[in-house]
């Protein structure tokens, strides 16, 4: 749910990175944080367990520049990927403006990808959202691993809606900003449509 503040001339939008456990959602945010000009980012918060698994969420506020005199600010969140944290995932999806689904390309994680994508659709639906109506992009992460499924296979299984999709290797940053730009663009385009 974007927040338009005429007083400070700001637009604030919420983007959620979703996906199965250990797919690289937090790594995406860490890369964005590491590579962004300090003037444009706030503090990154990670509510994680002692073994650095996301417990509740990661949060990174980011400023992208001005549009028509309004500062655009994006709040990036990740959800905890592990199956049993579903209650937390539902909470974090509230008021979402755009979704990135981070898929793990390893062939043995395909089932986990499918399960997580179904879970995303269910949790969005509970809040009255449909995945095909929300600005949405897919990132196929870990493309560098030898056991990665083919791109065609990933697309066939995970992207029947033909959402914008990107290959990535978040540990080295490949594809991370392309994904972020695509979802941010989707959110702003949506805002433009809503204004019509």
């Amino acid at each position: 749910m974007s927040f338009i503040n005429y007083s400070s001339r700001e637009i604030n939008c919420k983007i959620v990175f979703y996906g199965p456990g250990l797919c690289g959602k937090t790594t995406n945010l860490q890369h964005i944080y590491a590579k962004t000009n300090p003037d444009l980012k706030g503090k990154m918060i990670s509510l994680a367990t002692e073994t650095e698994r996301t417990l509740f969420f990661d949060f990174l506020p980011l400023a992208l520049g001005q549009i028509r005199g309004f500062k655009t600010r994006f709040h990036l969140y990740t959800v905890p990927g592990q199956v049993f944290y579903d209650a937390s995932r539902k909470l974090i999806l509230k008021g979402v403006d755009g979704v990135v689904f981070v898929a793990d390309s390893q062939i043995e994680r395909m089932e986990a990808n499918i399960e997580s994508l179904e879970n995303l659709q269910i949790n969005l639906k509970e809040q009255g959202y449909e995945l095909d109506k929300v600005p949405y992009v897919i990132q196929y992460n870990k493309r560098d691993l030898p056991n990665a499924a083919s791109l065609d296979e990933m697309r066939r299984v995970l992207n029947p809606m033909r959402a914008p999709d990107f290959e990535a290797c978040a540990t080295v940053g490949k594809g991370v900003f392309e994904t972020l730009k695509a979802v941010a663009k989707g959110v702003l385009t949506d805002l433009k449509k809503m204004g019509r």
Partner: peptide, 21 residues
């Protein structure tokens, strides 16, 4: 406002969005 469709963002062009990136 939503019902009347008045929003400053209706005027955003694709170029405005592209320029941001």
């Amino acid at each position: 406002e939503a019902a009347s469709g008045s929003s400053p963002f209706a005027e955003i062009t694709d170029d405005d969005i592209d320029n941001l990136f």
